[in-house]
């Protein structure tokens, strides 16, 4: 049966508890300072102003209004708790096939952005390495908390990790046999909470963006056999403005793909000339 409720809860064994992420180090405390985010937002605004002036104006107005409110109240709520994300796509393939594709965890880097590698470390455990924007990596161990073939997989991070996370993917046949409804629920315990998540979106993706785009790539791989890209295609000179635009909106939205060939073999042309 198709889920009627929009919000899905992770099961008790998988989901994260809110108390898990009290600030520990100075860095973590700094990451929870609203002023850090206000300053970064202001910097981003100034950077972007030339490109999106109406939006910038609205932002400036919002920022001014926000300053009028007691800062702690405004940011306090946004900086607590677990960040929950959900994404749903209908995929034109049977549930069993999709379950198997997802269950092949070591294949995840094919469709999950920034995931450099996944190594199985046991029957239900695996080690994940993720590339971070601006160099560096984030590593964590993960364990499967539920395996229901053709229906559901759930997982959570285990051991010490800066970003505890948990999630599940559910596969349900769509109405009238029109493919499979695939829903991913993920939880992240980010230093800085929802505000940090939003800020992250300005430089990389938000956790919600990752959840959604990774599922989209999964769909593309399952249905079309490849993930569309334009990375590595030719283009003319890019202006400074375009480079700024790309930094915020452009190429980070695409998978990195190694070109499969060198330059064109011009045989046909040569034959015609000869």
């Amino acid at each position: 049966m198709i889920q009627a409720e929009i919000e899905t809860q992770l099961d008790a064994r998988t989901r994260l508890s809110v108390g898990q992420g009290e600030p520990q180090s100075t860095t973590e405390k700094a990451a929870r300072s609203p002023w850090l985010y206000a300053a970064a937002l202001a910097a981003v605004y100034l950077f972007r102003r030339q490109i999106f002036s109406p939006g910038g104006l609205m932002f400036a107005t919002g920022f001014y209004a926000a300053k009028k409110v007691k800062t702690g109240q405004l940011f306090g709520a946004a900086m607590q708790g677990v960040v929950r994300e959900q994404a749903t796509f209908t995929i034109n393939k049977p549930a069993g096939e999709l379950y198997d594709l997802w269950r092949d965890l070591e294949g995840a880097p094919r469709y999950m952005e920034s995931i450099q590698s996944v190594k199985l470390t046991g029957g239900t455990t695996s080690h994940w390495v993720m590339d971070l924007p601006g160099g560096g990596t984030l590593e964590w161990d993960s364990e499967l908390t539920a395996q229901e073939p053709g229906r559901r997989l759930a997982w959570r991070s285990i051991g010490e990790t800066p970003v505890p996370s948990a999630g599940q993917v559910a596969f349900e046949p769509a109405a009238s046999g029109r493919g499979t409804v695939v829903r991913v629920d993920q939880e992240f315990l980010l230093p800085g909470g929802k505000l940090a998540a939003t800020m992250g979106g300005l430089f990389s993706r938000t956790p919600g963006g990752f959840t959604r785009e990774n599922l989209r790539h999964f769909k593309q791989l399952a249905e079309a056999g490849e993930i569309p890209t334009t990375k590595g295609q030719p283009h003319g000179p890019r202006s400074a403005t375009t480079k700024v635009t790309q930094a915020f909106t452009g190429d980070r939205e695409q998978q990195n793909i190694e070109p499969q060939t060198g330059t064109i073999d011009h045989d046909i042309e040569r034959q015609e000339v000869a």
Binding site: E226, K231, Q260, T261
Partner: peptide, 26 residues
Amino acid sequence: MKALCWMGKEKLEVQTVDDPRILNPQ
């Protein structure tokens, strides 16, 4: 190869750029 590049409003230029390559298997 030669290609027409959009460089801005009412600004087009024929540029010499890299040849395209196979990026995906299809």
